[in-house]
Simulated assay, not measured.
Amino acid sequence: MIPVRFTPETCRTATRTLARRDLVLARLIKAHGPCTLGTRIRRDSFAALVRAIVFQQLSTGAATTIYTRVMATMNVTACPPPATWLCTPAESLRSAGLSTQKTRYILDLCRHVTDGSLDTRRLHRMSDDDVIATLTQVKGIGRWTAEMFLMFHLQRPDVLPLGDLGVVTGFAKVYGNGTKFTADEMTAHAEAWRPYRSIGSWYMWRALEAK
């Protein structure tokens, strides 16, 4: 069975369900409006993973600039297939602004795809846990990156990224008056959000925005 993913309609259903179950979350939903997870454009999985690596630990603006420069170095406007990356000298990628570490990570991803150890076409059919286990075999893709891929690319509805600083800080602001929760405490609280923990997490990020 192919795992469930968000659509705009299921996202609206999830929002209504969460508002009934969690009155604190209901106030956030009213303040910030509908969740937009189910409305995002899906790129191909390889391109999404490349972007995820490039954007790690950088501001959106800085990462976008580097990504654009790297694409220009390869004379393309969109992420090319792995063979193109592997044929491009690593020095050229670094000269475009990609760090040595991220260059290694992307080339390792390319090798996994090329040798068949990572079949990106199968990811959408895998369970969340299997996607995480598969992706974290690639250098530079940790659990957090895999969870963001699940939420924003595969649009899975029940992801709780406990290692995400925004989610942790949002929990502390919304439910703890600034006191941080442990991973176990957040997991226990988010049981009421199942099977829509991605939506609940999305509102933890929104809680950190000035409103």
Rank of each mutant, 00 (worst) to 15 (best):
T84W: 07
T84Y: 04
T84G: 07
T84M: 10
T84V: 15
W85I: 08
L86R: 08
L86T: 06
L86K: 08
L86Q: 12
C87N: 15
C87G: 15
T88D: 12
P89M: 11
A90F: 05
A90N: 13
A90E: 15
E91G: 14
S92P: 00
L93S: 04
L93N: 04
L93P: 00
L93T: 01
L93F: 03
R94S: 10
S95C: 13
S95Y: 14
S95Q: 15
S95K: 15
A96E: 12
A96T: 12
G97V: 10
G97E: 14
G97R: 11
G97T: 13
G97S: 12
L98G: 11
L98V: 13
S99V: 11
S99E: 14
S99Y: 05
T100P: 10
T100Y: 15
T100S: 15
T100R: 15
K102L: 10
K102Q: 13
K102P: 00
T103Y: 03
T103Q: 07
T103G: 11
T103N: 11
R104I: 06
R104L: 10
R104V: 09
Y105C: 05
Y105P: 00
Y105T: 01
Y105V: 01
I106H: 02
I106W: 01
I106V: 13
I106C: 03
L107K: 02
L107C: 04
L107A: 03
L107Q: 03
L107I: 04
D108F: 00
D108T: 07
D108E: 13
L109C: 02
L109S: 01
C110T: 01
C110R: 00
R111S: 06
R111G: 00
R111E: 09
R111D: 02
H112Y: 08
H112M: 11
V113E: 02
V113C: 12
T114N: 10
T114L: 12
T114P: 01
T114D: 07
T114H: 02
T114S: 11
T114R: 13
D115Y: 04
G116F: 01
S117V: 07
S117M: 08
S117K: 11
S117Q: 11
S117R: 15
L118Q: 05
L118E: 05
L118F: 02
L118S: 02
D119N: 14
D119H: 12
T120W: 01
R121M: 09
R121D: 14
R121P: 00
R122K: 10
R122I: 06
L123E: 00
L123W: 00
L123D: 00
